[in-house]
């Protein structure tokens, strides 16, 4: 499991995350939700110590994986990145074939035999569902969905304990998203998969737990955590409610809740069940989702 303690991250001259506390389980899918700019990507990047590649990022606090402090001097950056794989929002194809792309990191970070490297690469490609006919094709000829899968295969081939995906469904068509969701669910059977997304439908289908982050004036923090049904249907916090309402009901909800949030004090904002109604059909949208 991953545990963040008093994680403060500064970047571009401001505090992005402030004293963030978060614990993620050993396996399953944890979804990080929150408005753009609330530090979700920064959280993922800090976990694999990207602050060491980017002097703009400054990280304080501790991040533990199964009790080991990932930021300790005795733990190498390479070791962290072999345990935790980060799949970026916009993957870039490496030069060469699809298979080259997957063997690349294995060739340059391990001393495995060539045959073993290829075996693991093929296994990873199979796991993400890229057909064998594509292996010899130039990677920059792949479609957006295939490229996302390739990026996942590149990471899965290293057999990490944790996979982190930054907005995996962005730019994909609905069918590709469903395929991706199935892949995420399969991958999360044996490991922890952390997903950053704005897609609440996807969240509802794949998440075992949801963590909601909110950008406060002095930095971002986790304001609410729980199972997806609870957080998405009965948000305890006004920030979450605003976000969820906006996602289901669109702009109309936003104006209403914006005011509510402005003069909201803790007691006034008690949990209440949202009447999530889709404008056109009149059916509760969450009900519709549960049916799926």
């Amino acid at each position: 499991m991953i545990r963040y303690r008093k994680l403060t991250v500064r970047g571009c001259g401001q505090v992005i995350l402030r004293e963030l506390e978060l614990a993620l389980p050993e396996r399953g899918t944890a979804v990080l939700l929150g408005p753009s700019g609330c530090g979700k990507t920064t959280l993922l990047r800090s976990t694999i110590r990207e602050d060491e590649d980017d002097p703009d990022l400054e990280v304080e606090g501790t991040i533990e994986l199964n009790g080991v402090d990932l930021r300790a001097g005795s733990v190498s950056r390479v070791a962290v990145r072999q345990k935790i794989g980060l799949i970026p929002q916009r993957p870039v194809a490496f030069p060469g074939t699809v298979l080259d792309n997957v063997t690349f990191a294995l060739r340059h970070t391990t001393r495995l035999a060539k045959s073993e490297i290829e075996r693991r690469a093929r296994l990873a490609l199979e796991e993400v569902g890229l057909e064998e006919g594509l292996y010899a094709r130039a990677a920059d000829c792949l479609s957006g969905g295939q490229l996302k899968r390739l990026a996942i295969a590149r990471t899965v081939a290293l057999e990490p304990d944790v996979l982190m995906m930054d907005e995996p469904s962005s730019g994909l068509d609905p069918l590709a998203v469903v395929r991706l969701e199935r892949l995420i669910m399969r991958l999360s059977e044996h490991r922890l998969v952390v997903v950053v997304t704005h897609d609440l439908h996807m969240t509802r289908r794949i998440a075992d737990e949801v963590h909601f982050l909110w950008p406060f004036q002095d930095g971002c923090r986790v304001v609410e955590s729980g199972p997806p049904e609870r957080v998405l249907e009965l948000p305890a916090r006004p920030e979450t409610r605003l976000f969820v309402q906006a996602a289901w009901n669109g702009a109309a909800a936003l104006y209403e809740l914006d005011e509510e949030l402005e003069d909201c004090e803790a007691e006034e904002c008690l949990p209440r069940r949202l009447t999530l109604v889709e404008d056109e059909t009149g059916r509760p949208s969450l009900g519709a989702m549960t049916e799926r």
Binding site: V78, G85, A105, T109
Partner: peptide
């Protein structure tokens, strides 16, 4: 693209390699 470098580094490949 910087992303190419970043994504290789994220896989644990050293800067030099």
């Amino acid at each position: 693209p910087q992303a190419l470098r970043a994504q290789s580094l994220a896989l644990g490949v050293s800067r030099w390699r």
